[in-house]
Design a protein around this nucleic acid. Sequence first.
RNA 1: GGUCGGGUGGCGGAGUGGCUACGCAGAGGUCUGCAAAACCUCGUACACCGGUUCAAUUCCGGUCCCGACCUCCA
Length: 448
Amino acid sequence: MALTLYNSLSHAKEPFRPLRPDAVGMYACGPTVWDFAHIGNARMVVVFDLLYRLLRHSFRTVTYVRNITDVDDKIIDAARRNGEAIDALTKRTADAFHAHMAALGALPPTIEPRATEHIGEMVAMIQALIAKGHAYEAQGHVLFAVQTDTHYGHLSRQTQEGILEGARVEVAPYKRDPADFVLWKPSTGDQPGWDSPWGRGRPGWHIECSAMAERYLGETFDIHGGGRDLIFPHHENEIAQSSCAHGGKPLARTWVHNGFITVRGEKMAKSVGNIVTVNDLLPRYDGETIRLTLLSAQYRQGLDWTDDAVEQAKKSLDRWYRAAGNARPAATVDATFLAALEDDLNTPEAFARLHGLADAALAGDASAAASLKASANLMGVLDKDADAWFRAVPVGTGKDQIEGLIAERTAAKKSKNFAEADRIRKLLLDQGIVLEDAANGTTWRRSS
RNA sequence: GGUCGGGUGGCGGAGUGGCUACGCAGAGGUCUGCAAAACCUCGUACACCGGUUCAAUUCCGGUCCCGACCUCCA
């Protein structure tokens, strides 16, 4: 069984064949570091992390590039609002991003380039586009001339007329064509800027990804991805810039886009006031639980974020941890599970298989337990000891205290003082501790 | 208006031209001093209308809804 991915370019699932047999290059559009990552950002990271892990499972070398956008008008605005220096804001936000994504079990990408460290590459690419007649300078701006790219609109299946009909923004007067977009724009004295052949300025949004992808992955690479909303205009423009700079060569062969998250049925937006950040969730839920929730729907589908969805994910993890116990992961991943993931990352199907393995493991099949662990590990979950999972110490309760109460209760039970035994059970339950009596003694776990 | 995606049982969510997805919740049961966990059993589904077919939730056409994007939002 081999990996199949839905390619946004062809609108079909395709067998994945890398350009080079044993090395894969993948680029995903990373965060603009102006505020905490929300669960939408997190979904993209977790989905591409899963794809990264799956690729590493099958190919010797996988180069995963995920950028950090640290120059952007949203950053300038946020810094001004906060009364904070721009570099302080971007550092603080990038650090938080790293901590939050690590909590979700996302591996660091192979390379994480920052836009501000690649201005030279961007200027060079813009110069190449001007030299080839695909871009022009106007009033301190450099613009990409979409008319010069006959393939423009291919990814989003839009005609240039169609794009313009729905335009919501006033067209700048210096544009030759209303659909032209900015490659470089002038900066005022208080805005971040770099010297360039067109004066002091800063890059437009799209050029950084084209320039950094070229630098680290070459002119054409295997997979490019991001959230669905990036298809237009961001990815469309990246394709235009890169392929025009590279004599028509394609930018990426497979385009992967993840679906959006809604919160209790509504679009997540500042204006609705329902933004859920990873920072908000981590005190309430284990990062692993959040990760599993993000994977509970197939990545191209929408995902509605509700407390109930998170609770369900937690229950699945409880069950898998109970079934896997402290088994050592098997050397190989379960074939049925792998086949589900290789079918365009069908995580719900993969979950079903894990539940099946858990059934077998609970019935006493040790190899199923080992396989469950190895398989779930590939997905980036179930990598703790069961003890660590169930006995993370609740606030205000010490392990010694719990063990002491259990001993008291065991003594009470022995003398048939069930009222006292039940009193202790209740006492601990009120502190979030569930006791489980088994033939070989009493164990405890946290209840939530 | 253009482009794209979707409507599955109480809920979440896969998939398929005929055979139980899976999970959660619910009902009953086994076990248990009581619980928990585990196990067993049970129920309800494929938006609507046509068509193709021996057979459609699955294919085709139409209708109705919902969502995303249409110049910088993952």
